[in-house]
Design a protein around this nucleic acid. Structure first.
Length: 584
RNA sequence: GCCGAUAUAGCACAGUAGGUAGUGCACUUCACUCGUAAUGAAGGGGUCAUCGGUUCGAAUCCGAUUAUCGGCUCCA
C-alpha cells in the first residue's frame, strides 16, 4: 500500500504497520467527510483523526443527526471507495487556504488555519471533488478501503472544551480486507461479554438499583469478594506498619473550609444540615485522618505515622458519567495518610511504590507510572510545589521506576504519582496514587516536637493502592473475564451429586470442605450431571466435585476443573491439599 | 451536565398500518435418579419505566420526567 506525504513523497508499507494503519484510517475519515458533504452540503467539518482503533470525524450538522443516518452515509462512502479516487497533496498560501474555507463556510477549519504559524504554506489533500486542509499522510487511493463500518454517533465538544459548542462525532473503523473487519467486530462482541456490568449481574456480585443511581449494592457473592480484598489489604498494611482508623461519613462544614475542599471541591460534595449546622458528606477521608493526628501532641518518635482507612466517600458525579462499578457516587477508598518528617519523605514514597508493585503483581497486573504536576486551581507556593514534585521524582529515580509527566493534573493540594494498571486485554486504569501534600498540615497547623524540642510541621502523603474497591472489583472482573482465581472466587468448589440418594454424602463432603476453610456450595437438585456441570461452568466456579456411587464406596470425590480438565478421584483431604497448594 | 440512542416477565428478546401482550431460558409442581456443558410435561409470573396528552380505544402516536447504553467533559 502506498502512503503519500504532504511533499508528495511516497512510501510503501503494509497495513499491519502502525504508520500505514494511521494513514489508512485517517483517509477513511476523509472519505467519511466527503460522503457527508455530498449528502448534506451545509454540514461544517471540524476534525477527523485516526485513533487507536479506527477513526472519527466531528461535524456540525444543521439537523439532528442520529444513528438512522449512518446507513446513508455508509452507502455514499461505498460509492466513493468504488470511484477509486486517488489522493494527492498540494501546498497553498495561507490566504488561499482562508479564502477556500471562507467560501465554503468551514468555520472550524478557519479556526484551525488561524492557529497555524504565520508565513508557512498550508498543505491540502484532494480526492475527487473533495479537498481538505491536512498535514497527512494519506493512502494513495480510496479503493483500498475495502471494508469499513461506522460504529456510533456521539457528542463531542469542539476542541474538547465543555464551554464550546457540542459537535456530532461519528466513529468508524476500516480495513483493507473484509475478514479483518469481521474479526474486529467479533473481538468487540467478546469485550462486551467480559463487561463487568454483565458479569457482575450474572455472577451475583453487585447490582445498581434504580433508586440509587451510582450507588452500587453488593450482593452476597460480591461481599465475599470485597471482604477477601479487604482482608488482603489489612494483612499487608499491618505488616507494613500501618494503623487502621475509621472516621465519620459526615463532618461539619468548617472542617472542609479549613481543608480547602469547600472552596475547591464543592460542586462534588453532598451536604446536609444537623441542628442548623452545615455538614458535608466526605468526598475524601483526609480531614478525618487529620483530626486523628491532631487528637494529641505528636513527637518525632511517632513518625512516620501511617494511618490507614477503608473509608466510604461520596462524590456527586454528573449523571452522564456513571458507569457500572467504574464510576460511582459512593465508593470505598483504601486510603492512608502518612505523616512524616522531611527526611522520611523519600523513603516513605518508595515504600508505598513498592507496596503498590507487590499488590498489583499479586493480580498479574502490569502498570506504568505518571507524575502529575500543579493544576490551575491549586493552593500553596511555587517553591513548595517544586520541592514536592522533585521529591516524587527523586524517589522514583532512586529505585529505578520510570514515569511520564502529566502536566497540570495534580490534586489541588499537591503533585502526585499515578499508577495506571494494564488489564489482560490491554486497557489501562488509573488506580493507585501517591500524593504529596505540604498544604493540609499547614492549614490544620499540624505539628510534632523534634529531638531538640522544636515544634515542626509534618509533611503528609495521601495514597491509595486499589483506588476504589468498587472500581478495582470491576477491573478484576473484566481482567479475569469473570474467571476469578481460586483465592478470590466467592464459591471455590461446587459439589454436584449424581443422584438424590448421594445427597447425604454430598452434604458430608461439603461439611468437611467448609471445616477446612474452603468456600463451597452444593447442587443437590434432581438434575442430570451434565446439566449441573453446565451451570457450575457458567457460574465460573473454579472446581467442581462430583459424588456418586463410586465416590461414596471409596469415600472420595471426583474433581473437575473450570477449564474442563478432569483430575480424577481422590480423598477429600488430598483435594483440599491441592487447593491449599494453589492458594499459596 | 452535554450530544445521540434505548426502556416490554428474573435474564435475552419478538410484538409498525393504534383494537387491552408473546417466545426461549430461569422459577414452581410432577415424573425421571441419571457419570462430565441443557430429561420431559404441566403451571405461575408483566398497571409494556413513570406522569401527562391525542383517541371510542395507546406497549404502539405526542410531550415531560427518570434510569440505562455509546461518547464528550470530568474522575478513584
Amino acid at each position: 500500500m502506498k502512503v503519500i506525504y504532504r511533499d508528495n513523497e511516497v512510501r510503501e508499507g503494509s497495513f499491519e504497520e502502525a504508520w500505514v494503519k494511521e494513514a489508512f484510517w485517517h483517509t477513511t475519515a476523509h472519505v467519511l467527510a466527503q460522503a457527508v458533504k455530498r449528502l448534506y452540503p451545509d454540514t461544517k467539518c471540524a476534525i477527523g483523526p485516526a485513533i487507536e482503533q479506527g477513526f472519527y470525524y466531528d461535524f456540525e450538522f444543521l439537523f439532528p443527526f442520529g444513528e438512522e443516518h449512518l446507513k446513508a452515509v455508509e452507502a455514499e462512502m461505498k460509492k466513493i471507495v468504488k470511484e477509486s479516487l486517488s489522493l494527492g497533496a498540494y501546498e497553498v498560501s495561507r490566504e488561499e487556504a482562508v479564502l477556500y474555507m471562507q467560501e465554503r463556510k468551514e468555520d472550524y477549519k478557519l479556526e484551525l488555519i488561524e492557529r497555524l504559524p504565520v508565513g508557512e504554506t498550508i498543505s491540502f489533500y484532494r480526492q475527487g471533488e473533495y479537498a481538505e486542509f491536512c498535514a497527512g499522510p494519506h493512502i494513495s487511493n480510496t479503493r483500498h478501503i475495502k471494508a469499513f463500518q461506522l460504529l456510533s454517533v456521539a457528542g463531542a465538544y469542539w476542541r474538547g472544551d465543555e464551554n464550546n459548542k457540542m459537535l456530532t462525532r461519528i466513529y468508524g473503523i476500516s480495513f483493507p480486507k473484509a475478514s479483518a473487519l469481521e474479526e474486529f467486530l467479533k473481538l468487540r462482541e467478546e469485550i462486551k461479554l467480559r463487561d463487568h456490568r454483565k458479569l457482575g449481574k450474572d455472577l451475583g456480585i453487585f447490582m445498581i438499583a434504580k433508586q440509587g443511581p451510582g450507588f452500587p449494592i453488593f450482593l452476597p457473592k460480591g461481599m465475599i469478594l470485597k471482604n477477601i480484598l479487604l482482608d488482603y489489604w489489612r494483612e499487608v498494611h499491618a505488616r507494613e506498619g500501618y494503623m487502621e482508623i475509621s472516621t465519620p461519613i459526615m463532618l461539619e462544614r468548617t472542617l472542609w473550609e479549613t481543608s480547602g475542599h469547600w472552596e475547591h471541591y464543592r460542586e462534588n460534595m453532598y451536604t446536609t444540615q444537623i441542628d442548623d449546622l452545615d455538614f458535608v458528606v466526605k468526598p475524601m477521608s483526609c480531614p478525618g485522618g487529620m483530626l486523628v493526628y491532631q487528637s494529641q501532641p505528636r513527637s518525632y518518635r511517632e513518625l512516620p505515622m501511617r494511618l490507614g482507612e477503608l473509608g466510604i466517600v461520596h462524590r456527586h458525579e454528573k449523571s452522564g458519567q456513571l458507569h457500572g462499578l467504574m464510576r460511582v457516587r459512593a465508593f470505598m477508598q483504601d486510603d492512608a495518610h502518612i505523616f512524616m518528617t522531611e527526611e522520611q519523605m523519600i523513603p516513605e514514597i518508595q515504600n508505598v511504590a513498592k507496596l503498590i508493585d507487590e499488590v498489583y503483581s499479586k493480580f498479574g497486573f502490569q502498570y506504568h507510572v505518571e507524575l502529575s504536576t500543579r493544576p490551575k486551581h491549586s493552593i500553596g507556593s511555587d517553591e513548595e510545589w517544586e520541592e514536592a514534585t522533585n521529591a516524587l521524582k527523586n524517589a522514583m529515580d532512586a529505585i529505578g521506576v520510570s514515569y511520564e509527566i502529566n502536566e497540570g493534573d495534580g490534586a489541588f493540594y499537591g503533585p502526585k504519582l499515578d499508577f495506571h494498571l494494564k488489564d489482560s486485554i490491554g486497557r489501562t486504569w488509573q488506580c493507585g496514587t501517591i500524593q504529596l501534600d505540604f498544604q493540609l498540615p499547614r492549614r490544620f497547623e499540624a505539628e510534632y516536637t523534634d529531638a531538640s524540642g522544636m515544634r515542626r510541621r509534618p509533611i503528609m502523603i495521601h495514597r491509595v493502592l486499589f483506588g476504589s474497591i468498587e472500581r478495582f472489583i470491576g477491573i478484576l472482573l473484566e481482567h479475569y473475564a469473570g474467571k476469578l482465581p481460586l483465592w478470590l472466587s466467592p464459591v471455590q468448589v461446587k459439589i454436584l451429586s449424581l443422584a438424590e440418594r448421594f445427597n447425604g454424602y454430598a452434604r458430608e463432603v461439603a461439611g468437611e470442605l467448609s471445616h477446612m476453610g474452603i468456600r463451597c456450595e452444593m447442587d443437590d437438585r434432581s438434575e442430570k450431571i451434565g446439566f449441573k456441570i453446565r451451570e457450575a461452568q457458567l457460574d465460573k466456579v473454579p472446581y467442581m466435585v462430583i459424588v456418586g456411587q463410586k465416590e461414596l464406596d471409596a469415600h472420595e470425590v471426583t474433581v473437575r476443573k473450570r477449564d474442563g480438565e478432569n483430575l480424577g478421584s481422590m480423598g477429600v483431604e488430598q483435594f483440599v491439599n491441592c487447593l491449599k497448594q494453589e492458594l499459596l
